[in-house]
Measured scan of single mutants.
Amino acid sequence: MSGIALSRLAQERKAWRKDHPFGFVAVPTKNPDGTMNLMNWECAIPGKKGTPWEGGLFKLRMLFKDDYPSSPPKCKFEPPLFHPNVYPSGTVCLSILEEDKDWRPAITIKQILLGIQELLNEPNIQDPAQAEAYTIYCQNRVEYEKRVRAQAKKFAPS
């Protein structure tokens, strides 16, 4: 494992614990031996107030490669969400998460999670990743928002 990646992720964890947006979660997972795995984080993004996503808490896994922060983490909703920019596998399609697009090593975990929260309610229809959600979003916004509200209710924190 890269010392650069681990040191950056340790800084990220410290900064997150000191200050993070209300309702968001970002925690490194534990290895079988109980030690912390900084390369694999369990996160959760709350649906934004005043949107059909409100009330939901959407679980996301963030996986970092050894060359982080040169390369972005892979962000994957578990379980996958109904959304035009979420692949059926759950992987998020967002330009700041793509090395050859808008990724920059200075982007923080907090910025990534806030960017994904923004994307939930403002899909990028130029870059669809899920045919069904994309089609319904474009053709029947009322039905799309109904499905999103049902999903938010399903993923409401207990």
Rank of each mutant, 00 (worst) to 15 (best):
G3M: 15
N121H: 09
C75D: 03
A44P: 01
P157R: 08
G34K: 07
D100V: 15
S7H: 07
P28H: 07
A152F: 07
T135G: 06
K48T: 11
I116N: 00
D127Q: 00
Y144C: 00
Q126G: 11
C75Q: 02
P28I: 02
K154H: 09
R141A: 10
M62G: 03
D102R: 02
L60I: 13
Q111P: 15
K74P: 08
T51D: 02
I107L: 14
R17F: 01
L63K: 13
S71F: 06
P84W: 03
L60W: 04
P128H: 02
G34Y: 04
K48C: 06
Y87H: 05
D127C: 00
C43V: 15
V142A: 11
L97Y: 05
W41T: 01
I112T: 15
C43Q: 03
E145D: 13
N37K: 13
K48F: 10
R13S: 02
K110G: 05
P73Y: 03
P52D: 11
P28C: 01
K18I: 04
K48W: 01
F82Y: 05
P69A: 04
L63H: 12
F22D: 06
L114I: 12
K30T: 07
V25H: 09
L94V: 15
R8P: 07
P80W: 14
N121F: 03
N140S: 10
A152V: 04
L120W: 06
N140M: 05
L38T: 09
V27F: 04
V27M: 14
K14M: 05
L97H: 11
K14E: 02
R8Y: 08
A156E: 13
Q151Y: 08
M62D: 05
T108W: 14
P28F: 05
S7M: 14
K65D: 05
P79G: 14
W16Y: 05
N140T: 03
N85D: 01
P128T: 08
K59P: 09
C43F: 06
G34Q: 13
C138S: 13
K101C: 14
E145H: 03
L60T: 09
E54G: 11
A152P: 01
N140I: 00
I136P: 01
N124Q: 00
I96Y: 05
K30F: 07
Q126F: 09
E122K: 08
T35C: 02
Q151T: 04
L6A: 10
Y137L: 06
N85R: 03
E54K: 08
M36R: 10
Q117S: 11
C138V: 08
P105E: 10
W53N: 07
E42M: 07
D66W: 07
S70I: 14
D127S: 08
F22W: 04
P73V: 14
L9Q: 03
V92T: 07
N121Y: 09
I96W: 03
T35Q: 04
N31W: 10
P72M: 00
R141T: 12
L60S: 06
L60Q: 04
K18P: 00
Y134A: 10
A44L: 11
F77R: 02
A15P: 01
V148Q: 02
N31R: 09
E118T: 09
P52V: 08
K153M: 13
T91G: 15
P52L: 09
K18R: 14
A156Q: 12
L6P: 07
I4H: 10
G90A: 05
Y137D: 02
L94F: 10
G23I: 03
E98L: 10
F64R: 01
R147D: 01
R141N: 13
K18N: 03
L119R: 01
K49V: 14
Q126M: 11
F64Y: 10
A26S: 10
W53K: 01
N31V: 06
F58Y: 13
A106D: 03
D100S: 15
I45K: 01
G3T: 08
